[in-house]
Design a protein around this nucleic acid. Sequence first.
DNA 1: TATGAATGAGAATTCATTCAT
DNA 2: GATGAATGAATTCTCATTCAT
Lengths: 216, 216, 216, 216
Amino acid sequence: MARAAAKKTPTRIQRQKTRAILDAALEVFSQHGFRGATLDQIADAAGLSKPNLLYYFEGKEAIHRTLLHRLLDTWLDPLRQLDPAGEPLREIRAYLLRKLEMSRDYPRESRLFANEMLQGAPRISDEIQGELKALVDEKAQVIRGWVEAGRLAPVDPYHLIFSIWATTQHYADFEVQVRGILGAGADGHFHDAARFLTQLYTGGLKPPAAGARRRP
Amino acid sequence: MARAAAKKTPTRIQRQKTRAILDAALEVFSQHGFRGATLDQIADAAGLSKPNLLYYFEGKEAIHRTLLHRLLDTWLDPLRQLDPAGEPLREIRAYLLRKLEMSRDYPRESRLFANEMLQGAPRISDEIQGELKALVDEKAQVIRGWVEAGRLAPVDPYHLIFSIWATTQHYADFEVQVRGILGAGADGHFHDAARFLTQLYTGGLKPPAAGARRRP
Amino acid sequence: MARAAAKKTPTRIQRQKTRAILDAALEVFSQHGFRGATLDQIADAAGLSKPNLLYYFEGKEAIHRTLLHRLLDTWLDPLRQLDPAGEPLREIRAYLLRKLEMSRDYPRESRLFANEMLQGAPRISDEIQGELKALVDEKAQVIRGWVEAGRLAPVDPYHLIFSIWATTQHYADFEVQVRGILGAGADGHFHDAARFLTQLYTGGLKPPAAGARRRP
Amino acid sequence: MARAAAKKTPTRIQRQKTRAILDAALEVFSQHGFRGATLDQIADAAGLSKPNLLYYFEGKEAIHRTLLHRLLDTWLDPLRQLDPAGEPLREIRAYLLRKLEMSRDYPRESRLFANEMLQGAPRISDEIQGELKALVDEKAQVIRGWVEAGRLAPVDPYHLIFSIWATTQHYADFEVQVRGILGAGADGHFHDAARFLTQLYTGGLKPPAAGARRRP
DNA sequence: TATGAATGAGAATTCATTCAT
DNA sequence: GATGAATGAATTCTCATTCAT
């Protein structure tokens, strides 16, 4: 096989082109979805010819798959950093803000991911039930531990995580709507969002006062 | 014009077929997105031949547009019901639950909408900046009023609304992920979600005690 | 067969609708050509439904054929009137003007005919080699007789007829061009055309002076 | 864009195929008109697959447009050569014969043009009112000058040009009719046509004898 | 590596015609 | 007679992929 992907040691030029392709593909896929994107658009955005693009990747599907897999790692990073040894509320607030920053700085990745989810994750369901689930399970345990220790309001850890994902990714995935309603201003709303969410989760997760908890 | 849609009073069969088409289209569009959906799929799902489908609608775009416009109205209903005269926390909780129910009962509509947003709302941006914005502005004013009256924690009303949208729609839009993580059980998680969200927003929005507020 | 065309005695309503259809078809066919015209357009222009239209005619082709055949008769009328007993130059001038009037008053018919010719007369070649040729042959003989009698310049009668057809029909068939060049004014140019053509043919066909002819 | 047409310097193969396509398209369009022609026919005639044909041209319309525009230039050439410094009658006769030759040698081009005119010139009306009109205006001035100098019978120059167009193009545009009437012989009739037209215009345009003109 | 050329498998849409009432 | 409904056969155009160099 002449495919670059099959080679053992990618040359520098290979890495460079691969990166250009993936970047272009991210742009196109995140905006138009898998079916809506065309190789022409990607090739154009990457600055190379279509056949040349297919020299580096097996096909449209392969590009998309590679993109999703590479993305997942970055995507889970904020959650990985949730420190079991940290102060619960602070840890959750920090996680929340890290996620919000990702939505601000990597909206295309967020949309790519959301697109895939909407379609029923046909190209990434394995990873969801594997790597992702494992990490979430692990961190849910941590949160549950905090709850049981009375350091956090008694909430369902899974739904807590879901809500953090939802509220933060919303600013990337529904950006048009957000801008349409707030006015087309710059990214100022991320600051307001951070304040609001901090407040919401701080208030919503603060453990009941010690006295109140022990008595019943 | 021979299009049935152009006629004045739709016959029974027209209404029936039109409904069948829109239902089929909702299924297909919500799963594959606009570009990913094909008329073949829609015609199949509706039990019609492709040309017959085009006898009722001008084209693919027209079906999608009709779907989106009809949806928007239903979509905004829960927010419309937010009663300025009601008790703030209760109103918001009720709104939240209505939205959550919609995500449970109409996940396809939610995904259709999310798909459109992700693509940058090319076919519905007018309505967003018009009807939708107007309603949100109005209700944001209501919430702001509550805040200023000290009946709600001092939060940004827009971001509050966004967060409610995000957290509730998440269960429809990211359903695969939710099920992948929680296990493929039935809709039981909606109950847990309702409890969690109620708790989160109740805690996060409760106004500071009167005494506490006045003193600083 | 339920076709109206098959009936023996057409009712008044049948004649009326048939006429409406043919008139509509003339409009549409002459503008868009056979293939370019659609039954929808014709039905619309005739003010009836497509199936109803097909109740009166077997199909698209039948309408077109009927139109062409009915047209041919009218079309040849000016030539038929060429009177062998008349004064040659006057007869030809009169014929010329009759044709020019037809181009002015029936441009759609002219274009329908031209369209058919351009396509190679697939639907009317029989009539051309039959009825039309017979009439032309007959009148060509008349003209030849005038020439031989020295009452007309010695011209080829067939090409004379062709040139009269060409110059007069041009104002109908190439109307856009004529108007584009002369300016979009009303039909005033027909008057100028009549003068020019009269002059051209009078000068071009006048027999040489008697003395000049006999001497060589 | 992957279209070959968009590239800067056409390769040899591009020029070759482009020419083949245009030639095939000329054949098909001139016979069936724009709507009547199909890409299948053109592709077949050009010996290409349909998608390959669309690799060279944006679409059906683009092929037709290209054809018309390239044609117009050739089409106007005979008129451009009308020499203001020449002897009037001789110039006009020469123009006439050049046009007649074009009808004999490029009948498809003539029919393509006629087809477009019949439809109302939807794809070339700009050029008609621009380039074509300008040239005609210019040459009409020349002819008018000749008339005023008494070197030509006092005729309307525009209608003179129209009549030359009409009479010469007739042999291409109404070829079936001409052949149907004269018999299906070879191009012999062009010779007769040339003689007839020469005679007609010579007689029709000869200026009145100097003496005759001055006296009244 | 790179690209000009080519194509098969769709996909949307049109349209003459037929069916059923 | 009339029409709403339906459809099969095109027809234009797109696009992922392959070929050849």
